[in-house]
Each structure stands twice: as C-alpha cells, then as structure tokens.
Amino acid sequence: MNWDWQVFCKDTIDGNMVPRCFGGAGDITYLDWLLSAWGWTISVSLLALLVALVLGSIMGILRTAPHRGLVLLGNAWTELFRNIPLLVQIFLWYHVVPALIPPLRGVPSFLLVVLGLGLFTSARISEQVRAGIQSLTGGQRMAGLAMGFTLPQTYRYVLLPMAFRIVIPPLTSESMNIVKNSAVAFAVSISELTLFALQAQEETSRGIEIYLAVTGLYFITAFAINRVLHFVEQRVRVPGMIGGGG
C-alpha cells in the first residue's frame, strides 16, 4: 500500500493542500484539527484524573474508617460507579442527569464528561486507596492514636503518607487508563482524538494514516503520564524501605 501523510496538510473544508500544513486566517487543516483534538483529550483526561483522585481518595479513606455508616457510604459509591459501563455512565451524565436536574441543563458537555469519567475512575481509585491503607499494619494506626493524635491526625500524619506511597504504582496505571478511557467522550460529541479519527477517516478515506496518528498521540500521552508519576515515585521513596534509596 502507499502512504499519504500529506493528508494532514489538507484544508478541512475544500480539501486543498495548504503549504506548511498549518492553516491560517480561518482555514483549518487536518493537522490543526488533530492537535486541537489532542488538546481536548489531554484536558478531559487531566481534569477527570483530578476529580477521580480527590473523590477516590475520600471514598477510599471512608472505607477504612472505624464507623459503619462511612464504610457503607464508601462501599456503595464504589459499587455504583464500578458496575455500570463507562459509556452508559457518560450517557447518563449527558442525557439523563440534565433532564432530571434542570439547573444542570446549561453545563457544557465537556464538564459532564469530565464528571462521568472522573466518577467512574474514582471507584477504582477508592479501591486502591482502601487497599493501600489496609496494607499498613493495624499497629501504625494504634501507634498514632497512642501518641495522642486524633483519628484525623493519625490519617494525616501516619497512615496516608505511607498509603499513598504504596498506591503510586497502581495509581500510575489507573492514570494511563483514564487517558485511554477518555476516548468514550466521542460518543457525546466532544471533539477529542477518537471523534477526530472517526470524522477525518470518513472525510479523507485515509483511515490508516489518521488512526496511526491518533493511536500514536494516545500512546505518547499515556507514556508522559507514566514518566511523571514514575518521577514522583522516585522522589518520595523512603530510605531504608524495600526499593528505597540509601
């Protein structure tokens, strides 16, 4: 087969080749579109990751609290968002939630997708945070309390600093998953990479080149997140622990 990478230099409206590949003054090439779609993928992923980390951590912590009601709340949250397919959850946020809660009607679909993807992922993160805290021996909790720390202080100074170090590796893979899972946003017309792939493939019939570029950008994004978190993992290593420096 023959490649035609120049497809990215074409204008998206008239299909003419644009010199230097970047459109200007109102013209958009497929390359321009691809990069903007990449921007949407990155924005959706990072914002959803933020939502997922905050809510997932809170729910994970609640599930380890010595209080039946809080544990129940954390468990229910996790089961709810873990057992409905992501795409269905995205549809719920897009079609159902605004219909049931009128004030949400004006919210841009971008934010709804961020919420949907974020809550879906928060269930997985809550599972990891819970496991991380429970992997610490009960003695650490007791030692904190015995020093006169209140329960929140024991979490803040004793349990969470270690638990978060332990869960960085699974959190890394979950963060890479969020980039991959952000692809479902195409279904509610967010102009991200997968929607670009579908539409540009249709318009140009150069599916392989388009898909290769999109797949490559997903890969680069996930890999970048992996490197950043790997760096964090190295930085917070505890001397004297397994795998720790010094």
Partner: peptide, 15 residues
C-alpha cells in the same frame, strides 16, 4: 494494552 479499546475496535473495523 496501550491502545484505547475504542480505537482497537475502529482499527479492526477498518483493517
């Protein structure tokens, strides 16, 4: 494992 499932679905549908 490093490609989004949706993209894998599209790839196979194309290829």
């Amino acid at each position: 494992r490093s490609v989004p499932l949706v993209m894998v679905i599209l790839w196979f549908f194309l290829l």
